[in-house]
Amino acid sequence: MTSFVSVENLSVRFHAAKPVHAVNGVSFDLAEGEVLGLLGESGSGKSVTLRALMRLHPDKVTRYGGAVRVDGQDVLGMAPAALESFRGKTCAMVFQDPILAFDPVYSLGRQITETILRHEPVDQATARARALELLERVQVPSARRRYDAYPHEVSGGMRQRAMIALALACRPKLLLADEPTTALDATVQIQVLLLLRELQKEMGMSVIFVTHDIGVATEISDRLAVMYGGRIVEQGPLAEVMRDPRHPYTRGLLASTVTGGMRGRRLEAIPGMPPDLTLLPPGCAFAPRCGLAGDDCRAAVPPLAATGRRQIACIRAEAPCAPA
């Protein structure tokens, strides 16, 4: 049986004055109804990977490599018309900052209705009724009034709920969420997160959830993939990765996160800076910041090796971490 989403050795390169190697050989699979958390810092290639799943990067400057299959369709090889029908119907996206992602001169409701009319043979009234239902489903209070509101007229949390309603308008099988809670207040963050989780269960969607926030990732994911320098460095079931991180980068990431019962302890930070994607080192991208790195680390990129249900791209991560 093939998986619902399969990404094989995906690479994304942007052609500028200096070519940017944003994603360098990413592979993962996703089953129907599964939630994958894609964790990493800014510039780790997580958002670029996500957008590549819809081939959303500007054609002129982007070179894709590898293969992306969603629901049996070859995304990177699709004809433009097929791609336009695929977007929003099979696969939809929730953007990071809804104030930027909504068209400011159209009402919220109209933007949802527009999506429905684009993909389904229904009339205006039916589409409008569906959009209202969706707004109610994502718990927008007095949805009828909000339907005619413009993006700048409602609060950030409300906008993101409307954005989710828009993404779900045509019942997509795959939802791509690009840091959907980053632009929101902490209290609103958790509400939106819970809503997403609830809707995912209800509709049985697969979700790829990009975030730099470990707390958010643990809240929503079934499986976790940690990215660094445009590659996946560690992947596995959420509980296993959290309990026993193997890659030095994952360990550093977890050690630099505030969790309960840490009062009075010094927070560890990973020294150094994320790598320059125009000038990646020949070996492991994390080697310059890694305490365990040796010459062999800098010589060649370590392959993503499977051990049990885990995959780790580190030649010094053989031993399980001692329980803390």
């Binding site: 977007r87 929003g88 119907k89 996206m93 953007f95 900052d97 992602a101 068209d103």
Partner: peptide
Amino acid sequence: SQEFVHALRAKGLRHGQ
């Protein structure tokens, strides 16, 4: 180059739309 244009394309709208 604005984000909402990406979002419109992500909805599946055609070039003209």
